[in-house]
């Protein structure tokens, strides 16, 4: 897998964020991690990753607010977003990106990422 692909993971549950980060690094991706929406927005602005995997419920700024601000700032340059949540909020997230229902397998995660990044 190409390591010029950078993926930003935003999740307040660090055990989940770190586990996904390790798995993606093993697959050859460069990975950035944030544990809340505010930090996630900051990293997305600064690094413009190839893809953002984001939780929805997070402290200070939730995933939807982060997506809304990113779209407002970056417009069509906004990286593709995949929301991950144990709560079914597809109705709210569909305007900004895809949705993965937690819990999911790494196989499902990789397949979703590969489809979006076309690798």
């Amino acid at each position: 897998m190409s390591n010029d692909m950078q993926i930003l993971i935003v999740d307040d549950e660090d055990s989940i964020a770190d586990m996904i980060a390790d798995a993606l690094r093993d697959e050859g991706y460069a990975v950035l991690v944030a544990y809340d929406g505010r930090r996630g927005l900051e990293l997305a602005r600064n690094y413009q990753p190839s893809l953002i995997l984001s939780d929805v419920m997070m402290p200070f700024m939730d995933g939807l607010k982060m997506a809304e601000l990113l779209q407002h700032e970056l417009g069509s340059d906004t990286p593709p977003l995949v929301f991950m949540s144990a709560v079914d909020c597809r109705n709210q997230t569909q305007a900004y990106g895809s949705f993965l229902f937690k819990p999911f397998t790494l196989e499902t995660l990789f397949a979703t990422i590969e489809t979006i990044l076309q690798v």
Binding site: D12, E13, D14, S15, A17, Y35, V56, M57, M58, P59, D62, A86, V87, D88, C89, Q92
Partner: peptide, 27 residues
């Protein structure tokens, strides 16, 4: 959330609206 869904008081539509589940992560 998997466990909470088994109870009749659980209301999915309140999650995020009024009920926020946040982690005080180890970092």
């Amino acid at each position: 959330l998997q466990h909470a869904r088994n109870f009749s008081f659980f209301n999915e539509s309140l999650i995020r609206q009024n009920f926020n589940l946040i982690s005080i992560n180890s970092s």
